Simulated assay, not measured.
Amino acid sequence: MKLASKPLVLAAIFCGIATTATAKEYRGWNTHPPDYPVSVALDRFSELVAERTDNRITLTNYHSAQLGEGEFATEQLQFGALDYGIFSTAPMVNTVKELGVASLPYVFKSPEHQFRVMEGEVGADIATAMNEANMVPLSWFASGSRSFYANEPLNTVEDIAGLKFRVQNSDINVAMVEALGANATPLPFGEVFTALQSGVVDGAENNWPSYESTRHFEVAKYYILDEHTIVPEGIIFAKTTWDTFSAEDQETIRTAAQEAAIYQRELWAAREAESRKIVEEAGSIIVAVDDKTPFSDAMQPVYEQFASDPVIADLLKRIQATD
């Protein structure tokens, strides 16, 4: 048997090395436009990973829901068709019941309280449950508190009753709106402006930057600061993708994700202030809520329905005990 010449052997070896070292591209989903704080921070995350792996791992972000709307993208992540992305946990509640506790109205005292919970022992237990659904959370971004807005005046909890509100496709969100006497209409995020404009819905609920960046304030200028939910949102990988990385690469990616989260929170604070100024100058009517008791009291049926499970009840108790 004739042996290959030494140059050919070396060429084969170097070819193998080159193949091994070739960068692999991973696709990341994001619903927000490129200049949004979430998007800017997600791009920073990709840059950090590329730098620290010598471009061996390429994380390509597709902003503005280019890879599909939220519910579809969430399903794709669960099935491993997407590698990672920035996801709100609200649409995942129907898949990971433990996430339901984080979507309960008024469960978090503030965004800072939410971070302490999600980055602590409670968050670790929730992450374990997410792993079983093929999801690995790496860091948590600021997503602001969500409040109601509509195309007619909202001054009290009574004004919400009877209106049609767009909500994320989550049983808890539907129950929350119905507990206030309103009609819940789950719709993809990208369809909300047209739905408001055409009267399919009377209002929606979201944070300052989303209310402003989507131009929803142009068709729904009444905004009441009830701040009912502070829903976790962060960088989440498909576990099937995550498990392909070495332990060293996992640590590199996780660290980059956490650094990106700190950066995003700084951007978010500035964007919230800017967004509020924009909508106020455009004529939006902002109503502060000094006493949220009427809102929280109306949520008792929601707690009875979604916090009766022993697992959820225990998580809720631990969240309430977290300073």
Score class of each variant (00 low, 15 high):
residue 177 V to I: 09
residue 177 V to E: 12
residue 178 E to N: 15
residue 180 L to N: 08
residue 180 L to I: 11
residue 181 G to N: 15
residue 182 A to H: 07
residue 182 A to Y: 08
residue 183 N to E: 14
residue 184 A to T: 00
residue 185 T to R: 03
residue 185 T to G: 05
residue 186 P to Q: 07
residue 187 L to M: 03
residue 188 P to S: 03
residue 191 E to S: 09
residue 192 V to H: 05
residue 194 T to H: 05
residue 196 L to C: 02
residue 197 Q to I: 10
residue 198 S to K: 11
residue 198 S to D: 06
residue 198 S to Q: 10
residue 200 V to F: 06
residue 203 G to F: 03
residue 203 G to V: 01
residue 203 G to Y: 02
residue 204 A to I: 00
residue 204 A to R: 01
residue 204 A to M: 02
residue 204 A to P: 00
residue 205 E to S: 15
residue 205 E to G: 09
residue 205 E to H: 10
residue 206 N to A: 08
residue 208 W to E: 05
residue 209 P to V: 11
residue 210 S to E: 14
residue 210 S to V: 13
residue 211 Y to H: 05
residue 213 S to V: 13
residue 214 T to H: 03
residue 216 H to W: 02
residue 216 H to T: 00
residue 217 F to E: 04
residue 217 F to S: 02
residue 218 E to A: 13
residue 218 E to I: 05
residue 218 E to V: 07
residue 218 E to Q: 14
residue 218 E to P: 00
residue 219 V to A: 00
residue 219 V to L: 01
residue 221 K to Y: 10
residue 222 Y to H: 04
residue 223 Y to C: 06
residue 224 I to C: 07
residue 224 I to E: 10
residue 224 I to P: 02
residue 225 L to I: 11
residue 226 D to E: 15
residue 227 E to R: 06
residue 229 T to V: 14
residue 229 T to I: 07
residue 230 I to L: 08
residue 230 I to T: 14
residue 231 V to L: 09
residue 231 V to Y: 03
residue 232 P to C: 10
residue 232 P to W: 05
residue 233 E to T: 12
residue 233 E to C: 12
residue 233 E to N: 13
residue 234 G to P: 06
residue 234 G to L: 00
residue 234 G to D: 01
residue 237 F to Q: 01
residue 237 F to E: 01
residue 237 F to H: 01
residue 238 A to Q: 04
residue 239 K to S: 01
residue 239 K to F: 09
residue 240 T to S: 12
residue 242 W to V: 00
residue 242 W to D: 00
residue 244 T to V: 10
residue 244 T to D: 10
residue 246 S to C: 11
residue 247 A to R: 10
residue 248 E to N: 11
residue 249 D to S: 02
residue 252 T to Q: 01
residue 252 T to N: 02
residue 254 R to L: 08
residue 254 R to I: 08
residue 255 T to M: 08
residue 256 A to I: 11
residue 257 A to H: 04
residue 259 E to K: 13
residue 260 A to G: 13
residue 260 A to I: 12
residue 260 A to L: 10
residue 261 A to G: 05
residue 262 I to E: 15
residue 263 Y to H: 06
residue 264 Q to I: 05
residue 264 Q to A: 02
residue 264 Q to D: 08
residue 264 Q to P: 12
residue 265 R to A: 14
residue 265 R to D: 15
residue 265 R to G: 15
residue 265 R to V: 14
residue 266 E to D: 15
residue 267 L to G: 13
residue 268 W to Y: 15
residue 268 W to V: 12
residue 269 A to G: 13
residue 269 A to K: 12
residue 270 A to S: 11
residue 270 A to I: 06
residue 271 R to Q: 15
residue 272 E to K: 13
residue 272 E to D: 14
residue 274 E to P: 08
residue 276 R to P: 03
residue 276 R to N: 12
residue 277 K to Q: 08
residue 277 K to S: 14
residue 278 I to H: 09
residue 279 V to H: 07
residue 280 E to T: 04
residue 281 E to H: 02
residue 281 E to N: 07
residue 281 E to W: 06
residue 282 A to W: 04
residue 282 A to D: 09
residue 283 G to C: 07
residue 283 G to W: 05
residue 284 S to I: 04
residue 284 S to Y: 14
residue 285 I to E: 09
residue 286 I to M: 13
residue 286 I to E: 12
residue 287 V to L: 12
residue 288 A to K: 15
residue 289 V to G: 06
residue 290 D to W: 04
